[in-house]
Design a protein around this nucleic acid. Structure first.
Length: 517
RNA sequence: GUCCCCUUCGUCUAGAGGUUAGGACUCGGGAUUUUCAUUCCCGCAACAGGGGUUCGAUUCCCCUAGGGGACGCCA
């Protein structure tokens, strides 16, 4: 059996979003699952819209996601070059061959003329098909027109027949080529058009499986005609369902066509994203949902892909009305995410299940950007930072959320009386005696002794005995007195991480606040 | 308009001609946690509608409705 070769062929006309990334993922996974090769090809024949910046963005995104390509730009390979703009000679050669064999012909019809005819057909309620005006131009007519300097395109000469697309996902789908007509394979600027270039490239690159969005299904008969004209064998087709936004429409700027890098910047890991995207339209035969890339690489099969579209449902569109989610800042974008999405749940699972070292390594850049931890302490050697980060990880849906928690441990403590006006524990008459008793307990500890988990526990018990309260009032009162908050980590852990000095400072400030009030 | 595709809990999905239609996220309730969270248990919630075929259809066929996609010198 020949080696399986898949490819991802983005056009560098924008950034990579979830739709494109998922197509890349499927191609990558299929190649890996079948021990084949994954090829990256850049389709930059649209001279107007392709940009170098976009090219770099796309590669950057692909690298972040971890889809190392076996052949492609910046890696090379035996089937290069891998940018269509560098393969022009190949398209030319093959187009000449088709013209010589009378399977293609030059067309001098102007855009205006074509537009007019198209509108006429539309007005009659008919699908637009090229009328074949230039189909039987004689050679002398052709050279005359060329001599006049008229621009021309090259059209493929199609014949009416039925074409059966045998698709691994869609099944057998029939198309009538009479509805397609003679389509353009070379544009007047001399560049190959998509439906033609893709065939030349896929054939020359020995692509065995074309996995792409179902939007391409109706292009497939055109491509099959080109394969037939050359006498080549078409690849296996696999047209996977499109990903739609919460509005049930194809991902658009407003509805989730957010650059994949935005999710990276928010603090979702590539592991999370790959796992989540794999679940959009595919399911593991074992029914697993939480999966590492390794499992995906061995289990994925395009044959298990669903035909129905899946919704990328992570944004609250009610909130995001009139907002272009592809343009807003990361901080802004975060506000429009559903906090309880499956994506967040998966992300949390991945954060808490990775190794401690990997987690620390990955979160450090985010810690850095919060800006409250002193530069000198922002490293893996800092025990306090590391303990804090490890205690907090169960709470994080994204690495970026660390910014919610860090200031509590590092920023100056400045409680304000109005924040506690409605707190029953702060208003309680026991509050001061409770706080002071705890302060005395800490004071009894020898100089320099660390406020450990256990020391806090025994301290709390002693306070309870002394003041003669127990239960919730004891704990909540002390929590408020020592942290200025009613929620957070388990109290002993919390105080240990805060450290003796900070705890003393907090209790002192809280007591002062209470006495003032 | 023409052609193609789709429709299982709110969402991601499993499923097979006979199942109490399963799981996950969310949501609700409870237990544990002397807080929130975590964890655990329980629960709510779906086969778009109508016709066939069949002993039996959510599963196969047809129609309707709704949705999506394609119909470019874009890819």
């Amino acid at each position: 059996m020949p080696e399986i070769r898949t490819r991802f062929a983005p056009s560098p006309t924008g950034y990579l979003h979830v739709g494109g990334a998922r197509t890349a993922l499927f191609n990558y996974l299929y190649a890996r699952a079948k021990k084949g090769k994954f090829i990256l090809r850049i389709e930059d024949t649209d001279q107007v819209r392709s940009t170098e910046a976009s090219y770099h963005q796309v590669l950057d995104s692909l690298r972040w996601l971890g889809y190392e390509w076996d052949e492609g730009p910046e890696v090379g390979g035996a089937h290069g070059p891998y940018r269509q703009s560098e393969r022009l000679h190949l398209y030319k050669e093959h187009a000449d061959r088709l013209i010589n064999e009378k399977k293609a012909y030059p067309c001098f019809c102007s855009t205006e003329e074509l537009d007019r005819k198209k509108k006429q057909r539309e007005a009659m309620g008919l699908p637009y098909v090229y009328d074949g005006k230039c189909r039987s131009l004689s050679e002398t007519e052709v050279s005359e027109k060329k001599a006049q300097g008229l621009e021309h395109t090259i059209r493929f000469r199609s014949s009416a027949k039925e074409i059966l697309v045998d698709d691994m996902v869609q099944g057998s789908v029939r198309f009538d080529t009479a509805l397609i007509g003679d389509f353009i394979i070379v544009k007047s600027d001399g560049f190959a058009s998509y439906n033609y270039a893709v065939v030349i490239d896929d054939h020359l690159m020995d692509i065995t499986h074309v996995i792409r969005g179902v939007g391409h299904l109706s292009n497939t008969p055109r491509q099959i005609m080109v394969y037939d004209a050359f006498g080549w064998k078409p690849p296996q087709w696999a047209h996977v369902s499109e990903i739609v936004g919460s509005d049930h429409k194809k991902l658009s700027k407003r509805h989730g066509a957010t650059p994949i890098t935005a999710f990276r910047d928010l603090g979702y890991t590539a592991r999370t994203f790959n796992n989540y995207m794999a679940l959009l339209g595919w399911s593991s035969p074992e029914g697993h949902e939480y999966m590492a890339l390794e499992e995906l690489k061995s289990q994925f099969d395009v044959a298990r892909c669903s035909k129905s579209p899946s919704m990328f449902d992570v944004f609250d569109l009610e909130k995001a009305a009139d907002v272009d989610l592809a343009q807003v800042t990361i901080a802004e974008l975060e506000k429009y995410l559903f906090p309880k999405s499956k994506l967040n749940w998966l992300s949390n699972q991945h954060i808490r299940n990775t190794s401690e070292t990997q987690y620390i390594e990955e979160i450090l850049p985010f810690v850095h950007s919060v800006g409250v931890v002193p530069e000198a302490e922002t490293n893996v050697q800092n025990e306090r930072l590391v303990s804090i980060l490890l205690s907090l990880r169960v709470y994080l849906d994204t690495l970026g959320q660390i910014k919610e928690y860090l200031p509590d441990f590092y920023a100056p403590f400045a409680p304000r009386a109005e924040d506690f006006r409605d707190s029953e524990y702060f208003q309680s008459e026991n509050f001061v005696s409770l706080a002071e008793a705890f302060l005395r307990q800490i004071g009894q500890m020898t100089q320099g002794e660390k406020l450990t988990h256990d020391a806090v526990k025994t301290g709390i018990q002693a306070v309870g005995k002394e003041i003669n309260i127990k239960g919730k009032p004891l704990f909540m009162g002390l929590r408020l007195a020592t942290t200025g908050r009613l929620t957070g980590l388990e109290l002993p852990v919390y105080l240990e991480l805060l450290g003796r000095e900070r705890v003393v400072e907090r209790v002192t400030k809280m007591v002062a606040l209470k006495k003032e009030a």
